[in-house]
Protein backbone atom coordinates (compact mmCIF):
# COMPACT_ATOMS: atom_id res chain seq x y z
CA UNK A 1 0.00 0.00 0.00
CA UNK A 2 2.68 2.45 1.07
CA UNK A 3 4.78 1.32 -1.81
CA UNK A 4 2.19 2.46 -4.32
CA UNK A 5 1.81 5.71 -2.40
CA UNK A 6 5.45 6.60 -2.57
CA UNK A 7 5.72 5.71 -6.22
CA UNK A 8 2.65 7.78 -7.08
CA UNK A 9 3.98 10.66 -5.03
CA UNK A 10 7.35 10.50 -6.73
CA UNK A 11 5.72 10.41 -10.14
CA UNK A 12 3.58 13.38 -9.26
CA UNK A 13 6.37 15.40 -7.74
CA UNK A 14 9.00 14.74 -10.41
CA UNK A 15 7.13 14.09 -13.66
CA UNK A 16 10.08 15.11 -15.83
CA UNK A 17 12.92 13.52 -13.94
CA UNK A 18 11.46 10.08 -13.26
CA UNK A 19 12.09 8.14 -16.42
CA UNK A 20 10.88 4.67 -15.70
CA UNK A 21 9.26 2.60 -12.98
CA UNK A 22 9.50 -1.14 -13.21
CA UNK A 23 9.23 -4.10 -10.93
CA UNK A 24 11.30 -7.25 -10.69
CA UNK A 25 11.47 -10.11 -8.18
CA UNK A 26 9.07 -8.18 -5.99
CA UNK A 27 11.16 -5.00 -5.84
CA UNK A 28 10.22 -1.73 -7.46
CA UNK A 29 12.97 -0.03 -9.43
CA UNK A 30 12.80 3.69 -10.11
CA UNK A 31 15.02 5.13 -12.82
CA UNK A 32 15.60 8.86 -12.72
CA UNK A 33 17.69 11.54 -14.34
CA UNK A 34 21.00 11.99 -12.56
CA UNK A 35 20.66 15.77 -12.13
CA UNK A 36 17.60 15.33 -9.90
CA UNK A 37 19.35 13.17 -7.30
CA UNK A 38 19.53 15.69 -4.47
CA UNK A 39 15.91 16.80 -4.91
CA UNK A 40 14.61 13.26 -4.89
CA UNK A 41 16.81 12.30 -1.94
CA UNK A 42 15.58 15.28 0.06
CA UNK A 43 11.99 14.47 -0.81
CA UNK A 44 12.42 10.87 0.35
CA UNK A 45 14.23 11.85 3.52
CA UNK A 46 11.54 14.31 4.60
CA UNK A 47 8.13 13.64 6.04
CA UNK A 48 5.78 11.92 5.39
CA UNK A 49 7.82 9.09 3.88
CA UNK A 50 10.94 9.31 5.99
CA UNK A 51 13.32 7.13 4.05
CA UNK A 52 15.86 8.19 6.62
CA UNK A 53 18.46 5.52 6.05
CA UNK A 54 20.81 5.34 3.11
CA UNK A 55 21.12 1.60 3.05
CA UNK A 56 23.51 1.16 0.23
CA UNK A 57 25.09 2.99 -2.63
CA UNK A 58 26.93 1.28 -5.41
CA UNK A 59 27.65 1.30 -9.10
CA UNK A 60 27.42 -1.13 -11.99
CA UNK A 61 29.68 -0.89 -15.00
CA UNK A 62 27.94 -1.66 -18.31
CA UNK A 63 30.97 -1.57 -20.55
CA UNK A 64 30.28 -0.82 -24.16
CA UNK A 65 27.11 1.13 -23.56
CA UNK A 66 26.92 4.86 -24.11
CA UNK A 67 25.60 5.60 -20.65
CA UNK A 68 28.15 3.30 -19.12
CA UNK A 69 27.82 3.61 -15.36
CA UNK A 70 24.68 2.92 -13.42
CA UNK A 71 24.44 4.27 -9.89
CA UNK A 72 22.21 2.23 -7.59
CA UNK A 73 20.80 3.65 -4.36
CA UNK A 74 18.90 1.72 -1.72
CA UNK A 75 16.89 3.60 0.88
CA UNK A 76 15.14 2.26 3.95
CA UNK A 77 12.23 3.80 5.81
CA UNK A 78 12.12 2.62 9.39
CA UNK A 79 8.62 3.95 10.01
CA UNK A 80 7.17 2.24 6.94
CA UNK A 81 9.58 -0.72 7.08
CA UNK A 82 10.06 -0.37 3.36
CA UNK A 83 12.98 -0.34 0.97
CA UNK A 84 13.22 1.51 -2.29
CA UNK A 85 15.74 1.25 -5.11
CA UNK A 86 16.68 4.16 -7.33
CA UNK A 87 18.88 3.99 -10.36
CA UNK A 88 20.44 6.45 -12.71
CA UNK A 89 22.86 6.28 -15.61
CA UNK A 90 26.06 8.25 -16.06
CA UNK A 91 28.03 8.76 -19.28
CA UNK A 92 31.35 7.07 -19.96
CA UNK A 93 33.27 10.31 -20.34
CA UNK A 94 33.80 12.12 -17.03
CA UNK A 95 30.99 10.51 -15.01
CA UNK A 96 29.78 12.95 -12.39
CA UNK A 97 26.92 13.02 -9.91
CA UNK A 98 25.98 15.04 -6.86
CA UNK A 99 27.20 13.86 -3.50
CA UNK A 100 24.76 12.80 -0.80
CA UNK A 101 27.14 13.67 2.02
CA UNK A 102 25.09 16.74 2.91
CA UNK A 103 22.14 14.51 3.87
CA UNK A 104 23.66 11.19 4.95
CA UNK A 105 26.98 10.93 6.67
CA UNK A 106 27.71 7.36 5.65
CA UNK A 107 27.58 8.53 2.04
CA UNK A 108 31.06 9.87 2.67
CA UNK A 109 32.72 6.46 2.73
CA UNK A 110 30.33 4.84 0.30
CA UNK A 111 31.05 7.47 -2.32
CA UNK A 112 34.76 7.24 -1.70
CA UNK A 113 34.45 3.52 -2.34
CA UNK A 114 32.63 4.07 -5.64
CA UNK A 115 35.21 6.69 -6.60
CA UNK A 116 38.00 4.26 -5.80
CA UNK A 117 36.48 1.27 -7.54
CA UNK A 118 34.80 2.93 -10.54
CA UNK A 119 36.29 6.40 -10.88
CA UNK A 120 33.08 8.34 -10.55
CA UNK A 121 33.32 11.89 -9.30
CA UNK A 122 30.96 13.24 -6.70
CA UNK A 123 30.25 16.95 -6.76
CA UNK A 124 30.43 18.47 -3.32
CA UNK A 125 32.16 15.57 -1.60
CA UNK A 126 34.40 16.93 1.17
CA UNK A 127 37.25 14.44 0.92
CA UNK A 128 37.22 12.44 -2.28
CA UNK A 129 40.30 10.19 -2.13
CA UNK A 130 40.88 6.48 -2.54
CA UNK A 131 39.60 4.37 0.33
CA UNK A 132 40.56 0.73 -0.29
CA UNK A 133 43.43 1.03 -2.69
CA UNK A 134 46.60 2.98 -2.02
CA UNK A 135 48.21 6.07 -3.43
CA UNK A 136 49.91 5.32 -6.68
CA UNK A 137 47.42 2.68 -7.71
CA UNK A 138 46.42 3.25 -11.31
CA UNK A 139 43.02 2.46 -12.69
CA UNK A 140 39.78 1.46 -11.05
CA UNK A 141 39.67 -2.25 -10.22
CA UNK A 142 35.94 -2.93 -10.41
CA UNK A 143 35.62 -1.55 -13.92
CA UNK A 144 35.11 -4.32 -16.41
CA UNK A 145 38.20 -3.36 -18.39
CA UNK A 146 40.52 -3.78 -15.41
CA UNK A 147 42.08 -7.26 -15.58
CA UNK A 148 41.37 -9.47 -12.58
CA UNK A 149 45.00 -10.33 -11.92
CA UNK A 150 46.80 -7.08 -12.71
CA UNK A 151 48.74 -6.33 -9.57
CA UNK A 152 50.51 -3.13 -8.67
CA UNK A 153 52.87 -3.89 -5.78
CA UNK A 154 53.94 -1.12 -3.44
CA UNK A 155 57.28 -2.66 -2.56
CA UNK A 156 59.73 -4.75 -4.52
CA UNK A 157 58.79 -8.38 -4.30
CA UNK A 158 61.34 -11.12 -3.68
CA UNK A 159 62.22 -13.56 -6.39
CA UNK A 160 61.36 -17.15 -5.63
CA UNK A 161 63.86 -19.87 -6.31
Amino acid sequence: MEKKNIIEALRKKFPEQIMDISSQFGDEIITFESSALLDIANFLNDKPYEYTMLLDLTCVDYKGEDQRFEMVYHFLSLSLNDRIRLKTRLPEKSPKIDSLTSIWKNANWLEREVYDMFGIHFNGHPYLIRIFMYEGFEGHPLRKDYPLRKQQPRIRLRKLE
Binding site: F132, M133, L148, R149, Q152, L157
Partner: peptide, 15 residues
Protein backbone atom coordinates in the same frame (compact mmCIF):
# COMPACT_ATOMS: atom_id res chain seq x y z
CA UNK B 1 42.15 -14.76 -3.63
CA UNK B 2 44.02 -14.79 -6.90
CA UNK B 3 43.38 -11.20 -7.91
CA UNK B 4 44.65 -7.65 -8.14
CA UNK B 5 44.80 -6.91 -4.43
CA UNK B 6 46.40 -9.89 -2.73
CA UNK B 7 50.08 -10.81 -2.47
CA UNK B 8 50.43 -14.36 -3.71
CA UNK B 9 52.16 -15.72 -0.64
CA UNK B 10 54.13 -13.83 1.99
CA UNK B 11 57.35 -15.45 0.78
CA UNK B 12 57.25 -12.81 -1.92
CA UNK B 13 57.95 -10.28 0.84
CA UNK B 14 59.85 -12.03 3.64
CA UNK B 15 61.54 -15.42 4.04
Amino acid sequence: YDNYAVVQGIDRIIP
